[in-house]
Amino acid sequence: MLRKASLLVCVFFGGVLPLFLTVHAEQPTSAADTIDKQNTQDSKANAIANELTIATPQNDKVTTPQMNEATLDTHDLSVMGMYRAADVVVKSVMIGLLLASLVCWAVCILKSMQLKIAKRDAKKLLAHLVHSESFAQANQNLVQQKSDALQLLRATEHELKLTAKGPATDEALKERVVARLERVQASLSTHMNQGTGLLATIGSVAPFIGLFGTVWGIMNSFIGIAETQTTNLAVVAPGIAEALLATALGLVAAIPAVVMYNHFSRSITSYKAQLADILVAIMILVSRDLDRAHPQAKPLADLLNNKKAVAKAAKES
């Protein structure tokens, strides 16, 4: 019995007790390792979270310009590109302003040629009338010429023919000739003013038409902002640029129209002065012819001699 008990004690202390001690020794070590591992994992998670928190604004700053550039790249900001992307109303305004600008330049070219020819012919006619001795001589030498100012001579000739059919006084004849010449002069001035009213209208209305297109385009841009719920400048800028293009076209049409109108107003005023000089020259010829045919008319030498005799008698007295 003692031997069996000794054997059991030896087995217990030799095998079971070391195993038990080993198991209990490993359990505290495993718990400590587990805690250390959890602490390590927590620290790593916190570090990753901190890195993400710091990196998030930086990523936003980096990606935002890229989004803006990508948005801007989708819009063609050239003149034709903005026209194609514009609204139907804004397109209509742009087309109308371009047509108005073309009309202004067409009127400018035609009116410049018309005024140049008319003023040149009027200058030649005035010089011819000044050097003529009688109305018949002036009228005969201008048969082959073509000028609007010749209507003044034709009107004078017509009135002389009508007056020659019956008795008339010199004063009455002069009044009728002047009345006809003034009406012809007004008609020529009105004809020369044709087209300038269109320039004045375009010059005064074109900026407001362009402003209407701009207001309409900006209104559509704000509607787009409300629909997309974004205030990003890259989204808003193209629509506003398209709207402002209408105002620019309005100024392109209006500024040359105003300059042209002022230029032609001065030129037409100069032409009217030439017509007035022609009218005076014609009346001088008519008055000269009437004095030569008047029964009480005297030669100029006799009139001068009479004036000298009267002046001499006044001095002697």
Score class of each variant (00 low, 15 high):
Asp42His: 02
Gln27Met: 10
Thr34His: 08
Ala86Trp: 00
Thr63Tyr: 07
Leu97Gln: 02
Val16Ala: 12
Cys104Gln: 01
Leu102Arg: 05
Met94Cys: 12
Lys91Glu: 01
Asp73Pro: 01
Thr53Gly: 09
Val23His: 14
Gln27Glu: 13
Gln41Cys: 03
Ile35Ala: 10
Gln66Ile: 13
Val93Arg: 01
Asp33Trp: 10
Pro57Ala: 00
Gly15Trp: 14
Ala85Gly: 08
Ala45Arg: 05
Glu51Asn: 06
Pro65Leu: 06
Val93Thr: 04
Leu72Ser: 08
Thr74Trp: 03
Ala100Trp: 03
Val89Ser: 02
Met67Ala: 10
Gly15Cys: 12
Val62Thr: 05
Leu21Tyr: 06
Pro65Ile: 03
Ile35Gly: 05
Gln66Asn: 05
Ala86Tyr: 02
Met82His: 01
Val103Asn: 05
Thr71Arg: 07
Thr34Ser: 12
Ala70Thr: 06
Thr56Phe: 15
Thr71Glu: 08
Gln58Ile: 15
Ile54Cys: 01
Val107Lys: 05
Ser43Leu: 13
Pro28Arg: 06
Val23Leu: 15
Tyr83Trp: 12
Val62Ser: 07
Val62Pro: 05
Ile48Trp: 03
Leu72Pro: 14
Val90Leu: 10
Tyr83Glu: 01
Ala70Pro: 14
Val88Arg: 11
Ala49Cys: 06
Cys108Trp: 15
Ala31His: 12
Ala106Tyr: 14
Asn50Met: 10
Cys104Val: 12
Val79Gln: 01
Val107Glu: 00
Thr29Lys: 08
Ala49Gly: 04
Thr64Tyr: 11
Lys44Leu: 00
Leu77Asn: 05
Glu26Cys: 07
Ala70Phe: 14
Ile95Thr: 11
Ala85Gln: 06
Val62Glu: 09
Ala45Met: 03
Leu72Tyr: 03
Ala32His: 12
Met82Val: 08
Thr63Phe: 05
Ala47Cys: 00
Pro28Gln: 07
Val93Glu: 01
Thr53Lys: 11
Ser78Tyr: 02
Asp87Pro: 04
Asn68Phe: 11
Val16Leu: 15
Pro18Glu: 04
Gln58Asn: 07
Asn39Arg: 10
Pro18Met: 08
Asp73Thr: 08
Ser92Arg: 00
Val107Trp: 04
Thr71Pro: 08
Trp105Leu: 10
Val16Gln: 02
Val62Asp: 08
Lys61Ala: 13
Gly96Thr: 00
Leu19Val: 04
Val16Glu: 00
Ala86His: 04
Trp105Gly: 00
Val62His: 09
Val88Ile: 12
Ala32Thr: 09
Thr74Pro: 00
Gln66Met: 12
Met80Phe: 15
Asp60Val: 13
Leu21Pro: 01
Leu19Trp: 13
Cys104Asp: 01
Asn46Thr: 05
Val107Cys: 01
Val88Thr: 11
Ser101Pro: 15
Pro57Ile: 00
Ser30Asp: 12
Asn59Cys: 02
Val90Arg: 02
Glu51Val: 10
Ala85Phe: 06
Pro18Lys: 07
Ile35Phe: 03
Ile48Val: 08
Ala100Thr: 03
Lys61Gln: 12
Thr22Val: 04
Ala47Ser: 09
Thr74Leu: 14
Val107Ala: 01
Ser30Thr: 13
Asn59Trp: 04
Asp36Lys: 10
Leu17Asp: 00
Leu52Asn: 07
Phe20Arg: 09
Val16Thr: 08
Asn50Lys: 09
Thr34Val: 11
Val93Phe: 06
Asp87Phe: 06
Thr74Ala: 11
Cys108Gly: 07
Leu72Ala: 04
